[in-house]
Each structure stands twice: as C-alpha cells, then as structure tokens.
C-alpha cells in the first residue's frame, strides 16, 4: 500500500504565454511507508522541481499526486504539514533560538492559535531530538551548532511534525563525507524504525546506492526511471543518465572514472596485493598510467612492487625505493618511459 502516488505527473514551469517548460512528463511514482528512496540525476534534471511539486510548493503541469489517498495539491496547508515535512539544502538560520525551540517549530501544524505547547507536544519534541541523537544539544543556541548538528536539528524539527512522508533536498550538501554517511544512516534508521516514507534528493550517487531501498533516476532528457539501485546500475541506466564529457560511470567498480585516463597512458606493471596495492593502483590511475597485471605482456614498461615498507620502482635495470605514493609518482614522472 503506497503512501504517495503520482499518476501521469508532468512537472516544470508555466511561462505565461509561451509553452510551459516541461522537465519530466508522464511519470508514475509511488512511495510506501518505511521506504527510503533516493532521487538522483545530473544537475538540471529537475530533482528540486520534483521535490517542490511533491511538497505542494508548486502545482504539477499535468497529472495528480495523492498523499494517503487525498489530492496533495488540494490539501489544507496545516493538514499537509501534519502529513509531510520538508528539509531543504540551505543551513537553517533562525536567530536566537535554542535547538529545542527550533524543533518546537515543528509542532506548529499541531498546536492551536497561540502556539502553546502541551504535554504531548513536549513529548514529541523530546522524541524527535532523541531520534536524531541530539538530546544533549537541546539547549544550545542554534547558531553555535556546526553544520552537521544544525542539519540534525533541522531533521528533528521535521520529525516533530510527526509526518508520514519526509522530503529532503540535498540534506548532506554542506557536510563532510563522514557526516554525510552519518546523516544517511540516520535517515535509513528512521525509515525502518519510525515507518516514515523518506525521499531524498542527492548528488551523492555512491551514498544513494548504499542506503536507498529504491532509486528514482532522472536522466535529464525528461525520463524518470525507478528501481532498485543495483538493477539500475546493472541495466546501464545509471551510466546513461550520468554520461557526460570525459566521465563514465563504471558499473563494475560502482564509481565514476575519468575517460581520459583509461586508454592510451603509459603502462605500468603493479606487483602486490591487499589494501596497499589497491591504493597504489588508484594513485597510478589518477596519474594517468595504465596499470597492468604482472602476468600480462609488460616487459617494456616500468614496474612497481608493493613492499612491506614503501614501494620499489624498477625501470629497466634501475631500482629505486620510494617511501610514499607521492614520491613514487614523481619518481615515475622523472623516469624515462620505454
């Protein structure tokens, strides 16, 4: 039973007398409770427009969106805010409020005209803070929080609305890698434990692939495909959507690689195994070398051997010891190729 359902949805912008700008036409979408879906796609594909449309901030060009059976774009704003909460990219600025007071704003659609908080509101606020592991931040001023903490509090604010559906637009855009993974894991947990349906738009394909139950993939040519992340990667849809000048999505490695470095570079033989060898391979590839296995025909190129401590570079009869990958790369650059 899906919570959010869109039928024949077209999104975009009306432009007065000119024909409307359609970003996606005729999409059928659904989102179930307890499901975490990542919306991915290249810049300009319309991710934010889709989120704004699903959040009720702008109307669809065609089609109908229903949330728990009701037409989302005809819902009363307060009722909508009780069913759907949004977190946008920008770091939140609220002036002189404690974190808990910001979370308390999430109770607005539930409180009366004066905004007075009752016991159940206070309980919901505490629960939201606990859900994002931010109980100890409760009385800190919001402006003294780090970006990651602030985003957590903002998510707690959305949770305090007790929504059925949570929409997040690039919630990790301002955060470092570790914080990104932390927030994504947190959202995954919330979907499982609280039974929220969560839709996240993200640039970060690797994180999306790791955490999403399903992907909504916008390719930028007006199509929107949905499916399990692995299906989309295997079927080549991801590579197609993200193909751009010089970049290629490598389905085998599950990451982007630069097209320039692939063929043609000078060959280097790499000997060794384990973590050190894999990072050595990355360094060599980044340096523009073609890495060959020891068994291949390699007798013409330089050879790199991963040692217990450091690396050995062999060019013809010359041997050289390098203490770091940085010095290995510069030694390689100085070495005569062929």
């Amino acid at each position: 039973m899906s919570l959010l359902r869109a039928r024949g949805l077209a999104i975009g912008y009306r432009r007065g007398r000119r024909a409307p700008l359609t970003l996606v036409a005729d999409a059928d979408l659904s989102l179930a409770a307890g499901e975490l879906v990542c919306l991915v796609g290249p810049n300009g594909a319309g991710k934010s427009t889709l989120l704004r449309t699903l959040a009720g901030l702008q109307g669809p060009l065609a089609g109908r969106v229903t949330l728990a059976g009701a037409d989302l774009h005809a819902m009363d704003p307060r009722a909508l805010a009780r069913a759907l909460a949004t977190v946008w990219t920008d770091p939140i600025e609220v002036g002189l409020l404690a974190a808990r007071e910001l979370v308390a704003l999430g109770r607005h659609p539930h409180t009366g005209w004066s905004g007075r908080l009752h016991a159940e509101d206070e309980a919901a606020i505490d629960a939201a803070l606990a859900a994002v592991d931010a109980t100890e931040l409760a009385w800190r001023p919001v402006d003294r929080l780090s970006d990651g903490q602030r985003q957590k509090i903002n998510i707690a604010r959305a949770l305090a609305q007790e929504p059925l559906l949570l929409l997040l637009d690039e919630p990790t855009a301002w955060l470092d890698l570790a914080r990104r993974a932390e927030i994504m894991a947190l959202l995954q947990r919330l979907a499982r434990e609280q039974g929220c349906a969560i839709l996240i738009s993200s640039h970060d394909l690797e994180l999306a692939l790791r955490h999403a139950d399903r992907l909504w993939l916008m390719s930028g040519n007006g199509t929107l495909r949905t499916g399990a992340p692995e299906d989309l990667a295997l079927g080549g849809a991801l590579s197609t959507a993200f193909r751009s000048a010089g970049q290629h999505y490598d389905a085998l490695e599950g990451k982007f690689v630069s097209l320039q470095s692939r063929p043609g570079g000078p060959g280097v033989t790499l000997q060794g195994a384990g973590v050190a060898a894999s990072w050595t391979r990355r360094a060599l590839e980044r340096g523009g070398y073609r890495v060959c296995e020891p068994g291949a025909r390699h007798d013409f190129g330089p050879e790199v051997k991963v040692l217990q401590q450091g690396w050995e570079l062999r060019c013809g009869s010359k041997r050289q010891h390098c203490g770091s990958l940085e010095s290995l790369l510069s030694a390689l650059a100085a070495a005569p190729v062929d």
């Binding site: 946008w88 910001l102 607005h108 659609p109 905004g115």
Partner: peptide, 22 residues
C-alpha cells in the same frame, strides 16, 4: 495574536510554508 505565525517566519518563508503557515 500573531506570536505563532511570527515564530514560524523566523526560519524564513519557505520553511514557514512547510510548517503549514499561510
């Protein structure tokens, strides 16, 4: 009577709208 909508406007219009404020 406006304390509640004013509080909702603190984080900005977009968020206020998300909180169900007209």
């Amino acid at each position: 009577l406006l304390a509640k909508p004013l509080d909702a406007l603190l984080p900005g219009e977009a968020l206020a709208q998300g909180l169900g404020l007209n």
